[in-house]
């Protein structure tokens, strides 16, 4: 179009584009290197391990010397009579913890703490954060004491006091406690996100709805909840993935028991197989097969979430073209 276009303008501009990319890659470099070194390469290694029979009996740190067994680990896994149970255990665990605690209870707590005196709200939220910042060993110790048999257990002490029968909760209701224990930790994440979202709603809007004659409950239903839809989706997404991969508390509380795999979840199995086998024989190859499947599920879920919630709409084009 232009006859005045300077000679070599195209190559100059592409050279500039390259330079500007270099600037961006400079900013990305530290994160990029860490991600490559501690995520991508490990995932590649775990993929590789999953097709070897590496175990503590034939351990070698030299990748080339490991024995290739093809898809045998996956076959074993699929034929494992407990894999199916563990799979459904995982779904059950994520579904219930997420819906009851990480989302619903978190939402209720943040709504309650934003509708009371501001300082009291701060205090209550500080108390709710306790499970997250307490060392898991001590946190689980507390819950073990809660559910212990009489006369040590706290709940059973209440039961006795009320003239009720006492129970061995570890044996009767392990799942209830696994979910409650993890749920009480999970509340704080959603609580912080929701509270900060509610606090960022313009005060005019909140006052306007009261002036319009709605009650506080109606205001929550018709003003606040629609406005925090996005953080809700964010918490659902983020916490599903968190729950899928969390296992430390379960390991400390029930270690997948009582009995055979009663409260075992997928990530705990990967850990058990690879690091803390009952028989003292760590099966890294087989454990990696569990890990690979978990990675796969996590990635698929994340992709689905991104599609459904249109996360890529968040990626606006930069409005500066300077290197």
């Amino acid at each position: 179009m232009s006859i005045l276009k300077p000679k070599g303008g195209q190559s100059q501009s592409s050279r500039n584009a390259l330079r500007s990319y270099l600037g961006a890659y400079g900013f990305m470099a530290p994160a990029g290197v860490l991600v490559i070194v501690f995520f991508l390469i490990p995932v590649a290694i775990v993929l590789y391990l999953s097709v070897t029979n590496l175990a503590s009996s034939n351990f070698t740190s030299d990748l080339a010397k490991m024995e290739f067994v093809g898809l045998r680990n996956y076959e074993t896994l699929l034929n494992d009579q407990f894999a199916r149970k563990i799979f459904f255990n995982t779904i059950f665990y994520v579904l219930f913890t997420l819906s009851i605690f990480n989302v619903s209870a978190a939402l209720i707590v943040s709504l309650l703490t934003t509708h009371i005196d501001r300082n009291a709200g701060f205090l209550f939220r500080a108390l709710w954060i306790l499970p997250r910042i307490t060392s898991p060993v001590v946190y689980i110790l507390i819950w073990k004491r809660m559910m212990a048999e009489a006369p040590f257990g706290i709940i059973n002490q209440f039961n006795e006091f009320l003239g009720q029968p006492t129970y061995n909760y570890v044996a009767t209701n392990p799942w209830v406690f696994v979910i409650v224990v993890n749920g009480f930790i999970g509340i704080s994440f959603g609580m912080i996100i929701f509270t900060s979202a509610i606090e960022s709603i313009p005060k005019d809007l909140l006052n306007a709805s009261l002036v319009d004659g709605s009650s506080k409950l109606q205001r929550i239903r018709y003003v606040i909840l629609p406005l925090i839809r996005w953080p809700l989706l964010f918490v659902v997404t983020y916490q599903t993935l968190s729950l899928l991969t969390s296992f430390v508390e379960i390991q400390l509380l029930t270690d997948g028991g009582p009995g055979l795999y009663r409260t075992e979840v997928w990530s705990l199995t990967a850990f058990h197989r690879a690091l803390s086998n009952y028989f003292g024989n760590a099966q890294w190859g087989y454990g990696s097969a569990f890990a690979v499947l978990l990675v796969l599920i996590g990635v698929v879920l994340a992709v689905v979430y991104m599609r459904v919630f249109r996360f890529d709409e968040l990626i606006a084009e930069p409005r500066v073209e300077v290197l």
Binding site: P6, N16, R319, V322
Partner: peptide, 10 residues
């Protein structure tokens, strides 16, 4: 200002 680069022209 140089914040955007021209697509064409001078």
């Amino acid at each position: 200002a140089g914040i955007y680069k021209p697509t064409e022209g001078q």
